[in-house]
Each structure stands twice: as C-alpha cells, then as structure tokens.
C-alpha cells in the first residue's frame, strides 16, 4: 500500500510533465495544424542554453528563464523562417519539415557537445518525503508538480480569460473568419509557436535532472509519451492532454514499480494501440477540418 502511494504520487508528478509537453503539442496543433515532431529537439537546444546559464551564473531561476526565452525564440525562428514557407493545404509537408528539423538539430548538438550525458543536479532533494510513515514523492517531484500545475493553470487562464487567448482560440479554429474580424492571424500563429516551444523547453528542463542527464536525445522518450498522450486526449483538447498525461505518467510509474522499467514503454504502446482500436479515426479525425 505504501509503495502504491509512492508510485502514484511520483507518477502524477511525472505525468504532469508529460502533460505539459503534450499541451505544447496541442497548442501548436491548434495554432498551425502541425504535429511538431521537432518539439523535443528544439526543447533540448533550449535546455542546453539553460545548462550553460546555470553553469555560468549558478542560478536555477536564470536557467529556467534561459530555457523559456530560448524556447520562445526558437519557436519564433522555426515558424517565421521555416514553417511559414511550407505549403499548408495538408498537414503532411509541415510534419516532414519538422522531422527534418529534428535531424538537423540533433546532429548539430551531437557535433557541438558529443554523445555523453551531462548530469544536471536537481534543485531539490530526490529522497522521498514522508506523510506519517508513508513515503510519498520527493521534494524535487513536489517542485515539479507545483511548477507544472502553475503553468497548466496559467495556460488555462491565458486561453480562456484573456483577449489574447480569445484571439488565439479563434485564429486556431476559424482563421479566415478571424481575419475578417480584424484578428492578426499570422501573428497568432507565431505566438502559438513561441508559447508552445517555451512550455516544451520548461517540461524538458524539469525532467532532465531525474533522467540520465542532458544529451541530444534526452527528450525523445518524453516526446513519444507526450505524443501518445496527445493522441489519447485528442490533439485539439487541452483538457485531454492534461488527463492523458496523468494517466500515462501513473501507468509508467506503476509498471516500472511493480514489473520493470523495460516494460513501461510497452505498456504505453499498449495503451496507445488500445485507444486507436477504440477510436480508429486516429488523431486526424478528431476534427474534420477547420471551418472557414
């Protein structure tokens, strides 16, 4: 029983990070109708910057800021420099460009920093806290949980309570009508990319210390999990990303804890397959098409 509490609470913290990353995929999908396969590689670049900032200043807060700013700027550069020039009639060309981007970025990181994993120590202890005699999640997991929750709530407020959010939502589902109402749709797409890349960078930054460390491929598995989550919840649904993230996070934690870590990816794939069997339309059928 104690073990279950520990595993579930740890799973929730990890799930929220996956949910954050999945949310970043949802944001881009809604804004630009692209599954950004380059998201993980872009986020890792931002985390390398955060790593350098941390090494130079010793400040974790500055490192977080560095990741967010770099992430946003990368989003800006990729959207303005690359994606805007891709024909957008179907999602496919953009996705292929995104896959190309992964190869370029990961190769560049490999050339610049080599294959070794750079350890990044967590800002808080990783030994579990106790509620009574029951071990629950660690201080660092608690920190991750709080940060992820704050970001999720912040994104919710941004999209549902602000005029920028109103424009982002309208531009995402009805770009032409939005333009006719004076919404600067291309700018909304750019903001969507920046927001999304910054959130993804933060998610990777939160995860790196508890994984092997920083490496060009640090976020690959996170991407696979987050993509699964986005498919589970529906790429159009922020709430789905949140719930899906928690489900996958807890599933991974339980399978790892009760069976073995090697089975966790299999469990996630099993979940994905099951959902696709039940919802055979898959991701691109979540919404037929954008309305004019």
């Amino acid at each position: 029983m104690d073990r279950l509490v520990l595993l579930v609470s740890t799973g929730v913290a990890r799930g929220l990070v996956i949910a954050l990353f999945a949310l970043s995929l949802v944001i881009i999908w809604r804004a630009a109708r692209i599954v950004n396969f380059g998201q993980a590689a872009m986020a890792v670049v931002a985390v390398y910057v955060a790593f350098a900032v941390h090494a130079a200043t010793g400040s974790y807060v500055l490192a977080v800021l560095g990741a967010l700013v770099t992430g946003a700027l990368l989003g800006l550069a990729v959207e303005r420099g690359l994606m805007r020039r891709v024909p957008g009639a179907t999602p496919m060309p953009g996705m292929i460009v995104a896959i190309g981007l992964v190869m370029v970025l990961q190769s560049l990181l490999g050339v610049l920093f080599g294959p070794r994993h750079r350890p990044m120590s967590p800002v808080f202890s990783q030994s579990p806290l106790y509620v009574g005699d029951v071990p629950v999640l660690s201080r660092y997991d608690l920190f991750v949980l709080v940060v992820a929750l704050v970001v999720v709530v912040g994104l919710g407020l941004l999209f549902n309570r602000s005029t920028l959010g109103l424009q982002l939502r309208a531009a995402a589902v009805a770009p032409e009508v939005s333009r006719l109402l004076g919404v600067r749709v291309p700018r909304m797409v750019t903001i969507g990319w920046m927001l999304s890349s910054a959130v993804a960078a933060l998610a990777v930054l939160l995860l790196v210390p508890t994984e092997l460390g920083l490496n060009a491929h640090s976020a690959d598995v996170l991407f696979v999990h987050a993509f699964t989550v986005a498919v589970l919840g529906g790429l159009d649904s922020p709430a789905g990303a949140l719930v899906g993230g928690l489900v996958v996070g807890v599933l991974i934690s339980l399978v790892t804890g009760y069976a073995s870590a090697g089975l966790a990816p299999l469990a996630v794939l099993g979940l994905l397959t099951t959902v696709l069997l039940v919802r055979p339309g898959g991701i691109f059928a979540t919404k037929e098409a954008r309305t004019a």
């Binding site: 109103l166 309208a170 589902v173 009508v177 006719l180 004019a292």
Partner: peptide
Amino acid sequence: SVVTELTVEENLQLGALWR
C-alpha cells in the same frame, strides 16, 4: 460564419476587440 467553439459572448467580444 459563427466561430462555433466560442460562445455568443466570446464571438461578440472578438468582433469588438480591435475597436
């Protein structure tokens, strides 16, 4: 051309936004 995902209020807010 109503934005069907938004409410009536939100559609109107959107129309009023730049003005």
